[in-house]
Design a protein around this nucleic acid. Structure first.
Lengths: 232, 232
DNA sequence: CAGGCTTTGTGAAATCTTGCACGAGCGTCC
DNA sequence: GGACGCTCGTGCAAGATTTCACAAAGCCTG
């Protein structure tokens, strides 16, 4: 049963690398490069060339043996696969430091994610303007989501408020959430959550630092040590 | 050969989860919970209980069979392992929107990562004060790193300036870098880099959205779809 | 148009990660 | 003090991801 799959399944690990390739390819394209080999792309992305080829092979056979990949075409294909052919409006919940920075961060809209609105629970914040967007009351969330057909929500609230924000977003119809609050969210099946936690990132770094320190004072320096260093 | 290893090696996947456990345990501790089973912790972290136990087993045997883990002690052990027994000063390069938000973001210092300084190349930014820290010229970087013994650098510059910022940080003696710029950095071996790219996160989300849309218009809804949904 | 050089696409092996299943240890209650 | 119930720690199998290695193509040169 199943004449032709819903669509070929791309491994998560690959999906998380496609945006990197896309970014590199785009910048190379702007620099006038029209063709690249997996080796070159791998070098710039800091990964293994075979991995690049395998990743790209999930999209289809878009390379030319003996030559490489046509940058422009690859950019098109990756964008297609990631669903970047149209903009995705996002709504930001929480207009504190982070929410303001995100709204004001130009690179957001530039990359195809215009801010459809930003809401905050505090009356103090409401009606202030950040990044060209007026902060609106929490009650407007539903209306923003519906009218702009928003499917991505960004949570930039303090930790304790995050779950409630998530619930509101889900109820409003959002199906993807980018969570900056330092809590693990519970959402219904069918809603995708990604978490970005600065403290977590820093803690992972300190682990490596700590390890380096221990190694230095202990035995000889370890060779293939962690990190993602790339030779110059 | 090898009487006792440099130190037991903890898998990357586990290291990246330890901060999550730590955060949960800490909040539970504050809530007055003194003991937890792997099952409970797993529930809150949204992962499998066996995984929790295996993860924790890399730290040592700190649980009690039939009872669970003593929260306080576990917090202590994880903090120890992650090297969180003392603060780690960080230096921020780039005082634009993001740099300012990071410096102003209280949760930074609160979590043990006080901002030792923030530098910017632009004279316009220098001497302005953000988050209680005065922006200093790029030339002060070396001095900040040396005097406060900073080992973690945060890059919050625009993309094109990021590699240069990384080079400066490395030269100044920083061995861990948290990179917010949308470029892949090249650093010498022995320097750890972690990248946080908002556009990448959003693109991964749009991939799932796009997929959902395709599935909805195609065959029946898929059951175990992506995401990290947790039942309520 | 054959030979040589390059680079893709992909089986298959190696490695890493996850999840199951169960023995072993601990506390409690007769 | 023995039986019982709970939960940890972990060997092992299953699954995912990475890497190797090489045949299959495509271009170029003579």
């Amino acid at each position: 049963m199943s004449p032709h799959r819903t669509r070929r399944r791309i491994p998560d690990a690959t999906v998380s690398r496609l945006p990197i390739y896309l970014q590199i390819l785009t910048s190379q394209l702007e620099a006038g490069v029209s063709n690249m080999s997996s080796e070159e792309l791998a070098g710039l992305a800091g990964v293994n060339a075979a991995k690049v080829r395998k990743d790209l092979s999930y999209l289809g056979s878009y390379g030319t043996r003996g030559v490489g990949y046509e940058v422009q075409y690859l950019v098109y294909q990756i964008r297609h696969e990631l669903g970047l052919e149209h903009d995705w409006h996002v709504v930001i919940v929480g207009a504190g430091n982070l929410g303001q920075a995100l709204a004001g961060y130009g690179g957001f809209a530039d990359r195809g994610y215009p801010v459809a609105g930003i809401v905050d629970i505090s009356p103090d914040k409401v009606d202030t303007v950040v990044g060209g967007v007026r902060v609106r009351p929490l009650d407007d969330l539903q209306q923003i989501v519906s009218s702009k057909n928003v499917s991505i929500g960004v949570i930039a609230t303090p930790g304790p408020a995050a779950q409630e924000a998530a619930d509101l977003l889900v109820r409003a119809g959002v199906t993807s959430i980018l969570n900056f609050a330092p809590v693990v969210l519970t959402v219904p099946l069918g809603v995708t959550v990604r978490k970005v936690d600065l403290a977590v990132e820093l803690q992972i770094l300190s682990y490596h630092e700590q390890r380096r320190a221990a190694a230095a004072s202990g035995l000889r320096a370890v060779s293939g040590e962690g990190g993602r260093g790339a030779s110059a």
